[in-house]
């Protein structure tokens, strides 16, 4: 919902803190995910992720969540799906070139990012989305990635 996601961006620092608490928890649960099997746990986790993030951020389930680098404003809501900042068509009132009623996702992202501890993360170049992972849980992927980088000998699969 547009109003909710605008509210979230205004409180980006709070949501950053929430995520910072939440991330280690799901990573700690790795043995549980592994025991159930990442394949089997994918569907329920995806369901929760889709609904929670859908409500808060209008998440499009791109599979490669960048919210902590984009001021908690989901870049996939940009009609051009830009992942690295605003295009040159932003209107003088800060609204979108394509959808004049909507505030530019990246104008919001900039404001949101400046309130966050990780305000520098918005300057890092984001790689394009891998279309194969669209619709899958980015939480579980994150866990697997973290576990694999810390302990490359024990693949999370």
């Amino acid at each position: 919902m547009y109003k909710v996601r605008r509210w979230v961006v205004r409180h980006s620092r709070f949501f950053e803190a929430v995520y910072r608490t939440f991330e280690p928890v799901i990573i700690k649960l790795h043995p549980v995910w592994k025991r159930i099997g990442y394949g089997r746990v994918e569907a329920p986790v995806r369901f929760v992720e889709k609904n929670v993030k859908g409500f808060l951020f209008d998440c499009q389930m791109c599979g490669k969540c960048a919210l902590s680098s984009t001021g908690m404003s989901c870049p996939m809501n940009c009609p051009k799906n830009l992942r690295n900042g605003p295009c040159g068509g932003v209107r003088a009132n800060g609204h979108c070139e394509v959808e004049p009623e909507m505030r530019c996702v990246w104008v919001d992202a900039w404001e949101g990012s400046q309130q966050m501890k990780g305000s520098d993360k918005i300057h890092a170049v984001q790689l394009p989305v891998d279309n194969r992972i669209k619709g899958s849980s980015s939480w579980l992927r994150e866990v697997r990635q973290v576990v694999e980088t810390h302990d490359p000998d024990s693949p999370a699969n």
């Binding site: 009609p79 051009k80 799906n81 830009l82 992942r83 690295n84 900042g85 295009c87 170049v125 984001q126 790689l127 394009p128 279309n131």
Partner: peptide, 13 residues
Amino acid sequence: KPVFDLDSMSLLE
């Protein structure tokens, strides 16, 4: 259909 598979930044990269 708008494609936008890449953006200007990832195109540069």
